[in-house]
Structures are given as structure tokens and as C-alpha cells.
Design a protein around this nucleic acid. Structure first.
Ligand SMILES: Nc1ncnc2c1ncn2[C@@H]1O[C@H](COP(=O)(O)OP(=O)(O)OP(=O)(O)O)[C@@H](O)[C@H]1O
Length: 744
DNA sequence: AGCAAATCTGTTTTT
DNA sequence: CAGATTTGCT
């Protein structure tokens, strides 16, 4: 029944698959079959060495890549491969197994990054330090960098007061997390390293656990990750594959020099170069290669393809971002009408914000799309609310979750009640949840009219605390029921209630799906899963949708047709405050983007673009000029809207005329003057409307005159000029209840 | 305690 | 410009 792992492989790939014992480094360009080598090597290891699949540690960059690799291998060997995962999941799995060594009082939970940020903010506040100087975001960023760079913070010394301040904050942060049995994301890498380094016996056990180790996308490995590999890979059966030209996570501490380091650390090390690209047309590959060859800090490598020459890359210049989105939508629409499945097409951009305009264009043409890396399902407010209850069932010491549970739904428990409760808990050396369980403690904080809320909270906690932790579905359903969160959202936020309730139900479905796949794992496993899953993993891959994503999210993927938009200097390559921080990394990003395309590539840039609230004139990206002209077909459809007689609109990416967009009204003329027209009826059902020019009296602001209404973001607002208070923008629904018309 | 309005940011990429 | 945070009122 053995399958031939060498089947369909070229000679270099075969060499890499065959060389099982001793270190191996595969360095190769895009689309050369590196991931395929890893996959087939694993099959070969299992078959020829008789190694159990669960004793192969294979690291991929994303959960999705891991899932695909797992699926392929499990289909071939019919056994589970739980250690084909990301670094973070592998770290978590190790910590779960070794949790006794962490020294926590109860089972740990993984803190949500937002909750951690709140923790930093609170610590700065308690210290009474200036939150401008110690901005929680910056502090969190630096500490994360330290952890990923393996900095020993206890020994850290610096002249920089910010760094020393962060050190002081960190010591408090760490202690608090320890008390609450909470780990942050970076701890999933640091803690395994710490445990392994401090215990030779443990190290031996884990080294023996994985006789073979493989790492894909090695160029984006950071110091902690590499240390973990070094600790586990003393047997030297370590295989790394990577492409230095695809190193795009330098900002996260990844260091492409790890590739050179690997060769030294594992010297002598077999090195295999893969030089055939199986993915792209000749023109696309030549363009990508020409761009990346501009980098100076780079070792040249050969890459060729037997694929056809292919169609030229289309480059398009447009007036602004709206035209760009129209052009993309028109081109996609045409492809769809020619029978192309939408899932063959992807649109890439440097920064996530660019997806907004694209969405407008796509919606106009009813093109279904999926934004990869959009708000994670598990990051939605209502989901986090429920997760706080669930986390407390596992780890009642977690006060960040406690605070959220206490205050959603709102039940009259505020910061004061919480402070009091924490004091009582600390004094009794009990967890916050224990206070809710014990009448004697509860009565000490549920005093006066503050008491009602806490008693209600206590009642809820007592109904959920005995939910069966082995069954995530029962827990989720029990918490939804007991918390009363559905009726509360329905009542309190009717606008979004439907979506919210749908999401809440989906959480229950997710728990069901999880229970189905991991019957032995229980609630705790479900929560871990939730912490690590990204929105790229949750996508509905079965639907025929256009995919929109940042180039970072496109790493490792391939599509027949690719659009890259926003190719303007300072947008891509991206500048911060007019400075491009790392041009070579930006260029590698361009290389990654181009090399995702198999057949057709479209590149567009807009002469003006509104971003961050201002409209800027931009130059085309330097990367466009770096592509050899012979690879390109250039079109410029800018400047046509101003034509005196509009006539039929010229084609954009293609030659057939797309529908025209009327030229914009002179919007810059009077930005603050609201548009006229009747106000929408207030949502409360009353019929009161106000029109521009009406004179009104407002309960709070007194006499004023309605100027009209305008759109402020997604909201419609009423613009009123008050005699006493000047110009104000009011919510029309609420304002209607608070003001009345008066006669002149 | 809770809400709505006003003010103030900053502004990349993600496991 | 949009999101988060602070202020100010009930
Ligand atoms: N020997 C081969 N013959 C035919 N097709 C191959 C071969 N090896 C790989 N491929 C195909 O080439 C494409 C690229 O392979 P793969 O994703 O493994 O490359 P990669 O080097 O990991 O790419 P990248 O670094 O760009 O992510 C895939 O569609 C794969 O199926």
C-alpha cells in the first residue's frame, strides 16, 4: 500500500526527499516546490523509517498551511499527524503537556491581546506614570519584541529611560499574569524554551519525542523560534526550507540571516537548491526576478520555468482609488462572464485599509468576495463577552475575563464594585470567582444599592460553574442561556442585534464542530483553539468568492489570476512619515506578490488616493519601473472624466467600456456644508423630521437652527447651529426626542 | 453607573 | 477619516 514519495518530483526534489538523516537546507525561489518537498519527506520518513506520524514535528507558517499539509499526509498514511503545526500551536501543545512545571495554581488560559493591552494600561495608571510617555501600545510592542528576541529582561540594563520603564512595568505584568495563570501569545514560544533550557531531563525527553524535525518558510523564523528548534534538534535530523527573497517578517523579529546561521550551526549540512518554478508563466517569473534582483543584500539564485511565455502583465494608471476599484471590479466581472471561477482570482494590497474602496466597487457589480484577515470571528465583541465567561470556568483567577463577565450584560456592576470585590478576594486569598460563590464574602462587597448587580452576577456564576468542562457545547450553550446575553443585545443594541445573535449561535456551532473533531479535548481545548485560529483559517473556502488580502496574508498561496493594487510610491513601498523604513523588505514583498500569480497579473496605481483622511497625489511605485518593459502592457485611463463630452468610457484593464462613473461633485468646495434634503425618519417610529432651516429648541443646547444632515462615517448625523453652543452634530434619532420645532 | 457627545489620536504587515 | 478615549450630563 506504500505510495511512492518520489513520484512526480524532479531530481533535486528527490535528493531533498531522500536525504533523511543529518541536517538539510533547501534554499529555493518561489514556486519551486519547497512545500511539496516537506510534505513528501514526511511521507518518506513515516514509510521508510517506520516512525509514527505523531513523532514528526513539522512547522508551517500558518494554521491553514498546516491544515493542508496534514490533510494530504493523513490521507496517504491514514494516521493522525498532530505535530504538523505552527510554532505557536506546537508551543501551546507542549505547555499543556508540561503544565505542571509552569507552577500555576490552576489550568492556564491564553489572554486575548486586547485584554493584555488593558492590563498594560492599568499598570501604567497605577504607577501614575504619564500614559503619553508610556503608551500601552508601545510598551506591549517592545516587550513582545524582547520576548521574541530572547532578551533576558531581568538582566536588562539601558540608559534609555523608556526601556527601563518598560522593564519595571514588565516585572509587574509578568507577576500579575503568573498570579492569574494567564499566558500571552509570545509566552507560547518563550515558556517552552525556558522550561527546556532549565531542565536537561525534560530536554532529553522532548528531543527523543521528535526524531525528525522539519520547518517550512524558514526565512521568517525569529530568534525564539530558532532557539526552540536548536533545543529540540540536537539529533541533527532537521530540515529547513526557505527563500531569502521571501523574508517579509523582519518587523516581527524574523531574521533571514537564520538561513546562514543554520548552515553554520548544523555544519556540515547538506544543501539542495531547487531551480525550477512550476507555478508561473515565463513573463511573470522574469518580472519578479528582475524586481528582487535590485536588492543589494542578496545572494543570487537561478530560477527558470518550462511554463509558457504567458500573457503580458497589465499595468494600469487611473485617477483615483475609486476608479481603481471600478477597474478591478470591471475586469473581474468580465472574467466571471467568461466562465472563470472567482476563487481563481485574488486581489492583493500592501495595507489592509485599501480593501474598503475595493469592496464598494465589487458590491456595485455583485461580485461576492472574502477579505482574508478581516476581523476575526472570535474578536467580535459579543463573542469575546461569552469567551470571558467560558475562560473563567477553566481559570477562575483570570481577572481580565472577570471584569468583562461582570460588566456584560450591564447589570450595575461598575469599576467601584469590582475594586471592592478584588480587595475582599485578596484579603481572603481567594479568586474573584470564589467571592461570588461564598455568601460571607459576597455580603462584604454587595453593600447598599451596589449589591443588586453583584448578587445577580453571583447567581449567574452559580448556575454556570458546574457546567461539564468536558463538553464545550454544553458549556457554550449554558453560558449563553445563563448570561442572558441574547435578550440583552436584542434590547440594548437593536441595530446590530441580529448579527450579534447570529454570531452567538455560530459560536455554539463552532463548539459543536470542535467537539466533533476533538472529542477528548473539552472546553479548555476549544478555548485554546479559539485563541490561535486566525481569520484566514476560518474562511469559507467552498464558496466561489473573490479573495482580497494583504500580501503578507498571501504568503505561500497561489492563484491563476492576481491583481496588485495601490502600487504607488509611499503606499507600496510603504512610507511612514515619508520615510521608507526598509526598502529591501518592501521589495521582497513585491516579489512575493508577483510570484503568487500563475497565469495573469494586473498591477494598478492611482494618481491620487485618499488615505488617512487626506487626498494625496502619488507617483507610481518604483517597483513598476523595475519590471522590464517587455513584460508589461501599459494603459493609462486617467484624466478622462474631465473630458468635455463624456461619451463612452474607455476600457480600463480591458478594452470593452465599463459603466461610467460620473465625475465627482466639487467636493472640496465646502466640506462642512451639509447636504440638504429630508432627514430620515427617527427609528423610534415617531414621525418628527427636521429640515434645513428649521428653528428648534433642544433640551440641552437651547435654541438653534437646523443646517441639514450629512454622513459621518457610517452614521447619518443632523447638523445644527445653536445660539449658545455653536455647531453640533447630533444623532437624528436621539435628537428628535430631545428637541422640538419653534416658530420663527 | 451608564450613556451620548466631544475630543483626540495616529496612520503596516500577524502568529 | 475612523476608532478609541475622555468628558459631561442624567
Ligand atoms: N515536481 C513538480 N512537478 C510539477 N509541479 C510541481 C512540482 N513541484 C511542485 N509543483 C507545483 O508547483 C507549485 C508550487 O509548489 P510549492 O507551493 O510547493 O512551492 P514553494 O517553493 O513552496 O513556493 P513558495 O515559496 O512560492 O510558496 C504547486 O502548485 C505545486 O503543486
Amino acid at each position: 500500500m506504500a505510495i511512492d514519495p518520489f513520484h512526480g518530483m524532479n531530481p533535486e526534489q528527490r535528493e531533498a526527499i531522500a536525504h533523511l538523516d543529518g541536517p538539510l537546507l533547501v534554499v529555493a525561489g518561489a514556486g519551486s516546490g519547497k512545500t511539496r518537498v516537506i510534505t513528501h519527506r514526511i511521507v518518506h520518513i513515516i514509510q521508510s523509517k517506520g516512525i509514527r506520524p505523531d513523532r514528526v514535528l513539522a512547522i508551517t507558517f500558518t494554521n491553514k498551511a498546516a491544515g493542508e499539509m496534514k490533510e494530504r499526509i493523513e490521507r496517504l498514511v491514514h494516521l493522525k499527524t498532530p505535530w504538523i503545526t505552527t510554532f505557536h500551536s506546537a508551543g501551546l501543545r507542549m505547555l499543556k503537556i508540561e503544565r505542571a512545571r509552569l507552577g500555576f495554581a490552576n489550568e492556564f488560559t491564553i489572554a486575548d491581546p486586547d485584554d493584555q493591552l488593558r492590563r498594560w494600561r492599568k499598570i501604567v495608571e497605577e504607577k501614575q506614570w504619564d500614559p503619553k510617555e508610556f503608551e500601552p501600545r508601545r510598551v506591549q510592542e517592545l516587550v513582545s519584541k524582547w520576548k521574541n528576541d530572547l532578551v533576558d529582561v531581568d538582566k536588562l540594563d539601558s540608559d534609555d529611560p523608556f526601556r527601563m520603564g518598560c522593564k519595571e512595568l514588565f516585572l509587574i505584568y509578568r507577576e500579575r499574569n503568573r498570579q492569574e495563570c494567564v499566558l500571552d501569545f509570545d509566552d507560547l514560544l518563550c515558556e517552552p524554551v525556558r522550561l527546556l533550557e532549565s531542565d536537561a531531563e525534560l530536554r532529553e525527553k522532548w528531543v527523543a519525542r521528535f526524531p525528525y524535525i522539519l520547518i517550512d518558510e524558514f526565512q521568517d523564523t525569529n530568534p525564539v523560534q530558532y532557539r526552540l528548534i536548536r533545543l529540540l534538534g540536537v539529533h541533527r535530523n532537521v530540515c529547513a526550507t526557505g527563500d531569502p527573497d521571501q523574508a517579509i517578517y523582519g518587523w516581527r523579529g524574523a531574521d533571514l540571516k537564520n538561513i546562514l546561521q543554520f548552515e553554520k550551526d548544523y555544519s556540515p549540512c547538506r544543501k539542495v537548491l531547487l531551480e525550477t518554478n512550476y507555478r508561473s508563466t515565463k513573463l511573470i517569473l522574469r518580472a519578479a526576478q528582475a524586481v528582487v534582483e535590485r536588492n543589494t543584500a542578496r545572494i543570487d539564485k537561478v530560477i527558470r520555468t518550462d511554463n509558457s511565455e504567458g500573457a503580458p502583465i497589465v499595468q494600469l494608471a487611473v485617477d483615483d482609488e475609486i476608479d481603481e476599484s471600478w477597474a478591478v471590479a470591471a475586469a473581474v466581472d468580465r472574467m466571471r462572464s467568461e466562465g472563470r471561477p472567482l476563487k481563481d482570482i485574488a486581489v492583493f494590497y500592501r495595507i489592509g485599509r485599501l480593501s474598503r474602496v475595493l469592496e464598494d466597487g465589487l458590491r456595485r457589480r455583485d461580485i461576492p468576495y472574502h477579505i482574508v484577515g478581516d476581523v476575526r470571528f472570535y474578536d467580535r465583541q459579543e463573542i469575546k463577552d461569552l469567551l470571558s465567561y467560558l475562560k473563567l470556568l477553566i481559570n477562575p483567577a483570570d481577572r481580565l475575563s472577570f471584569a468583562r463577565m461582570s460588566q456584560v450584560p450591564k447589570r450595575g456592576v461598575g469599576d467601584r464594585s469590582l475594586e471592592l470585590l478584588y480587595e475582599v478576594a485578596d484579603e481572603a486569598e481567594a479568586t474573584a470567582c470564589a467571592v461570588l460563590e461564598r455568601d460571607d464574602l459576597l455580603e462584604r462587597c454587595a453593600v447598599g444599592r451596589l449589591g443588586a448587580g453583584l448578587r445577580e452576577l453571583s447567581r449567574i456564576w452559580r448556575t454556570i460553574r458546574n457546567l461539564p468542562l468536558g463538553d464545550p457545547v454544553a458549556c457554550v450553550k449554558g453560558v449563553i442561556e445563563a448570561s442572558g446575553i441574547e435578550p440583552w443585545y436584542a434590547d440594548h443594541d437593536p441595530e446590530k442585534a441580529q448579527d450579534r445573535i447570529a454570531n452567538i449561535r455560530e459560536l455554539a456551532s463552532a463548539a459543536e464542530a470542535y467537539r466533533e473533531a476533538h472529542a477528548d479535548q473539552g472546553l479548555s481545548g476549544f478555548l485554546d483553539h479559539v485563541a490561535l485560529v486566525t481569520s484566514a483559517d476560518t474562511e469559507a473556502a467552498d464558496r466561489d468568492q473573490l479573495r482580497l488580502m494583504t500580501i503578507h496574508a498571501a504568503k505561500g498561496l497561489e492563484f491563476p489570476i492576481v491583481f496588485i493594487v495601490g502600487l504607488e510610491q509611499e503606499v507600496f513601498p510603504l512610507a511612514r512619515g515619508r520615510v521608507i523604513q526598509d526598502l529591501e523588505e518592501e521589495r521582497r514583498l513585491m516579489y512575493v506578490g508577483i510570484t503568487r500569480a500563475k497565469e495573469l497579473l494586473y498591477l494598478s496605481w492611482a494618481k491620487t488616493r485618499s488615505l488617512y483622511g487626506e487626498t494625496k497625489r502619488n507617483e507610481p511605485s518604483q517597483f513598476l519601473a523595475e519590471i522590464p518593459a517587455v513584460c508589461l502592457r501599459q494603459r493609462d485611463v486617467s484624466g478622462r472624466r474631465q473630458a468635455p463630452a463624456p461619451g463612452p468610457r474607455p476600457g480600463m484593464f480591458q478594452r470593452s467600456p465599463p459603466p461610467t462613473r460620473p465625475s465627482r461633485p466639487p467636493s472640496g468646495a465646502a466640506p462642512d456644508v451639509p447636504q440638504d434634503g429630508p432627514d430620515p425618519a427617527p427609528p423610534d417610529g415617531s414621525t418628527t423630521t427636521f429640515s434645513a432651516g428649521d428653528l428648534i429648541i433642544h433640551q440641552a443646547f437651547g435654541r438653534g437652527r437646523i443646517l441639514g444632515h450629512k454622513n459621518s462615517g457610517a452614521e447619518r448625523v443632523l447638523v445644527v447651529h445653536f445660539d449658545q453652543h455653536g455647531m453640533k452634530q447630533l444623532n437624528p434619532g436621539l435628537a428628535a426626542a430631545r428637541m422640538r420645532l419653534v416658530d420663527e
